Simulated assay, not measured.
Amino acid sequence: MICRLNCGACCIAPSISSAIPGMPDGKAAGERCIQLDESNLCLLFGKAERPKVCADFGAEEWVCGTTREEALLILTDLENNTH
């Protein structure tokens, strides 16, 4: 699956415990990553400073659903049920 343009759900819904440029303590679940631009694209995509957890994430329908809203619900549910 190719990432859905203007989605960014994976950069908002889950918590990230590793450092992100501009967010040295990572980010909380539901918090928008500082590296997400106005079009919901990662400013670090393809760069060495992108956190490994982000680089390892791959868009798949079971995680991303069929809409941005569905992706946010699925990822939020996964976050809530894995802590």
Rank of each mutant, 00 (worst) to 15 (best):
N40P: 02
I16M: 12
G65Q: 12
P51R: 04
I16R: 06
C11H: 03
E49C: 09
L44E: 03
L41Y: 09
D25W: 07
A13W: 03
G8L: 10
P21T: 02
C33R: 02
T76L: 05
L41N: 10
R32A: 06
A13G: 02
I74E: 01
E61T: 13
G65M: 05
M23F: 02
M1P: 04
C10W: 06
A19V: 10
E61L: 11
N6Q: 13
A29G: 04
C33I: 03
I12H: 13
A29F: 00
Q35M: 13
Q35V: 07
R32E: 03
C7W: 09
A71I: 05
N40T: 00
A55F: 11
A55M: 12
W62K: 13
P14W: 08
V53W: 12
T76C: 01
P21H: 04
G22D: 10
L41S: 09
I16W: 06
D56K: 15
E38K: 15
A48W: 07
A59K: 07
L72K: 07
I20V: 15
T66I: 14
N81D: 09
F57Q: 05
A9E: 00
I2Q: 08
L5I: 02
S17G: 09
L75D: 00
A29R: 07
L36A: 05
G8K: 05
M1A: 12
E70L: 00
N80S: 09
E49R: 10
G65H: 09
D25E: 07
L44C: 05
I34A: 14
C11F: 01
T76R: 14
N81L: 10
K52E: 00
L36Q: 01
S39A: 15
C42Q: 00
A19S: 15
I2N: 12
E70N: 02
E49T: 08
K27H: 08
K47L: 14
R32Y: 01
G8R: 09
A13S: 07
L43I: 01
C64W: 08
D37Q: 05
I34C: 12
Q35F: 00
A71W: 09
D56A: 13
D56H: 14
M23G: 03
N40F: 13
L41F: 10
E60G: 10
M23Q: 07
N6G: 04
V63Q: 11
I2K: 09
V63Y: 11
P24Q: 05
P24H: 08
I16G: 12
R4D: 00
C33V: 03
L43R: 15
E38C: 04
P24F: 10
T82L: 11
L36S: 04
A9W: 07
D56E: 03
A71Y: 06
K47D: 00
L43M: 07
C64D: 02
C7Q: 05
C42E: 02
G22S: 13
P24A: 10
I20R: 04
A59R: 01
G26Q: 04
A48P: 01
P21A: 01
V53I: 11
M23D: 10
C64Q: 08
C42I: 03
A19W: 10
C11S: 01
M23T: 04
N81A: 11
E38G: 09
E70A: 06
G30A: 05
A28D: 00
R32Q: 04
N80Y: 02
I12F: 11
S39M: 15
A28T: 07
F45N: 15
